[in-house]
Amino acid sequence: MRELDVARITEAVAKLAVEACTYLGDDMVDFFKKAAEREESETGRDILGQLLENAKLARDTNMPLCQDTGLAVVFLEIGQDVHLVGGDLETAVDEGVRKGYGEGYLRKSAVADPIGARVNTGDNTPAMLHTRIVPGDKVKVIVAPKGGGAENMSAIGMLKPSQGIQGAVDFIVDTVSKAGPNPCPPIIVGVGLGGTFEKAAYMAKHSLLRKVGSTNPEPRLAALEDEIEKRCNALGIGPAGLGGITSVIDVFIEELPAHIASMPVAVNIQCHSARHKEAVL
């Protein structure tokens, strides 16, 4: 069995957190360029130009793209043939967050006692950790810092099965409409359909890791993503919410079977600072 020291996971989390907050993915940069060409609003084009310039500046000067460097959402896909040694895994991940956010001059945005004293934990821990056991002897580490503005506009609906596709699409579009200018549009709309309450929310979050511009391999869901995107872009919200035809960057759906009584629909909104980086150990 392959042994892997958890110190390597600490190092990876620290490095990926800084990289994610500083280097916007090429898929997003390409999107800004294309969207600036087709956006009808002059103000909208100007905003998209600013976002391109911001991404370049962040990359060139190693400054975070956005001051909200988020809570540290970490996904670990752990091969079942790996034996983790050298300490406790969750502690190692938190140590990576502490190191990355500290040495990388990222903002510490975590507060303990969230409905009371709201005291900053000082090092952006704990990580919001999701682990999955998968075949193989590798460990995939994904760090996806998530800002508060877009997260706050997210929603979950435990809809009635009778509401069907129309009800689900209406709920998703309505969530985007209500969010309006608040979550830093253009946004990515992550959707989780079915499963249980928590699985729906997890799928909505996990879907945000997909590459912008990619097509859902399931044709039924790909068509649904297109329909939702079209309806959201017709809302007129536009870049920075100042009006325009670019409200949504992409729509990503993940799906699971649901209980015979349930139709969960989760919507996780991602701002245009769509940050995630990964490494395989």
């Binding site: 905003i47 600013q50 976002l51 310039e53 911001n54 500046l57 962040a58 000067t61 400054m63 975070p64 793209l65 956005c66 001051q67 909200d68 903002r107 510490k108 945005s109 900053n120 000082g122 503005g149 830093c184 920075a240 701002c271 245009h272 600072s273």
Partner: peptide, 25 residues
């Protein structure tokens, strides 16, 4: 412009904490 934090920081020429330092950011 939300999310343009690197770009906007270039227009800030000086900064100092004047109250509530304990609140960090």
């Amino acid at each position: 412009t939300g999310g343009a934090g690197a770009l906007l920081s270039q227009r800030i020429t000086a900064a100092k904490v004047v109250a509530y330092e304990d609140l960090g950011p």
